[in-house]
Amino acid sequence: MHAPSTYVASVLFLLLMAAIYYLLLSQYAAEQFSVPPTEMFFQAFWLPVLFMVPLLTMRSLAEERRLHTLETLLSAPVSTAEVILSKFAASWIFYCVLWLGTMLFPAITIYGTSGVDQRLLLDLPVLLGGFSFVCLSGLLFIAVGILSSTLTRSQLVAGMLCFCILFILLLGPKLIGSQELGLWSDWLREPLQYFDTARHRESFIRGVFDTRPLFYYITNSSLVLAIAALIVESKS
């Protein structure tokens, strides 16, 4: 995590989020909306996820395999699962820290302006709900990044693969649900709702505690990491 690319990635992420937040503020200054600005900010969470998660995770194992350092690492008294888990934990914590940085935006806006309704920007239940969702869903997204990185020696391929899987995870249920599914619609309705990330985000932001997203993200990330460990073991 001390690599220069980590800092470059974090600077780019924070700049992108600052730009999104700034655009949001200028829109709210120009016209009225029926959704509070803090809620609207979290609605755009998929955009940084699609770009940041591949950037954060694509190096983790692909680079080790390319430089043939994975074998050296595994010769140490650690198991494959421990290696995978530590790579995953490092990326996930960094991802959460980056998002934590964006939580400063409302405070900065209040500090830098006068006459802005503080309750609109520092809406604590929404901020907490949104941040909890980002951390929870991050478990699965980062796990997907780690898995992609185990599949290939090329960082670029790992990044692209991760991007594609995340795209399907984030937008797939919504896109499929909006299609004419004919006889499948009844059968698919419930699974699609269960996998729908936007639905989970809405629940968290509205302060609704639901055990389903918890199970979904925790079990799925565990499964993805287990597969990643199996792949590393079989290739080493």
Binding site: P4, T6, Y7, V8, S10, V11, L14, L15, A18, Y21, Y22, L25, S26, Y28, A29, E31, Q32, F33, S34, V35, P36, P37, G101, T102, L104, F105, I108, T109, Y111, G112, T113, S114, G115, V116, D117, L120, L121
Partner: peptide, 28 residues
């Protein structure tokens, strides 16, 4: 919901919102 922000304030915010990114750059 609407925010009462002047053009001047928006201009200042454009710079202030870059502070977390600047802090990360300095740390790097």
């Amino acid at each position: 919901y609407q925010l009462s922000l002047s053009r001047k304030e928006l201009g200042r915010l454009a710079l202030l919102l870059c502070l977390p990114a600047a802090a990360a750059a300095i740390l790097g």
